[in-house]
Amino acid sequence: MAGGREIKTKIKSVQNTRKVTRALEMVSASKIRKAQDLMKASRPYARLMRQVIGHIAKANTEYKHPFLVARKDVKRVGYIVVSTDRGLCGGLNSNLFRRLLGEIREWQERGVEIDVVAIGSKASAFFKRLKVNLVGTATHLGEKPQVAALVGVIKVMLDAYTEGRIDQLKLGYSDFVNTMTQKPTIDVLLPLPPSQDLSTTHDWDYIYEPSPETVLDHVLTRYIESLVYQATLENLASEHAARMVAMKSASDNATKAIETLSLIYNKARQAAITQEISEIVGGAAAV
């Protein structure tokens, strides 16, 4: 019976692959929940932070922080790119990178240079190959990313902005819309887009301790950090959702492959049996 055993082996190996993809699918399904919980837990901070910044904007401050002032000509742009650490999550990273690449090409055609910091191994590997100016990386953040792990890369970019080495800072990540949809998103971090209710300046001001400059600097830095942190959490939820979907389709494909292979195997077996019978019959007739 020709090829019977090979088909059998192949079926076994596809079955094993399906076991792995099934397991990955289930693991991701449970991790989405956790990632969403993290997202939810981080929201109050960002909300209160925006509130405080809104208050500061309304207060009668003389001091204008550089983060709030838009610069006229842009010579260099910084990107903070949030990607996953691991693969097997469908087109999640490549969709984001494609969007970023489009923007970066546009900048480069206008003679604007690009600095990138990468969060996640995939972004690090991608931008390394691309030969853009990679100025910082943070990888292996795990299932529960900590703000502390992101401080370094953010500071690299904020310092570059304060010192005038970059004139704009953008943030690219995969936004978690729902389990089926993740949207590659690029936001402007710096200069901070002005808030709507800036017009109503009140005639009060804070008591600043120690001084408006230091407090404002602190608040705005933390605000940017919280935005990047939230993007990281969005990206984490997106990663698990994308992986779940990718692994589900892989499992389905494996099931189909097994069906087809079983059919081939059974046909081969049947053919072998038929042949054997006809050989026996032929042999008996000869005797």
């Binding site: 910091v117 690090s124 910082g136 990386t137 401080v151 370094g152 500071k155």
Partner: peptide, 10 residues
């Protein structure tokens, strides 16, 4: 120090 580390890693 964290910023330096990020740069070094890059």
């Amino acid at each position: 120090a964290a910023a330096r580390k990020a740069k070094e890693e890059a």
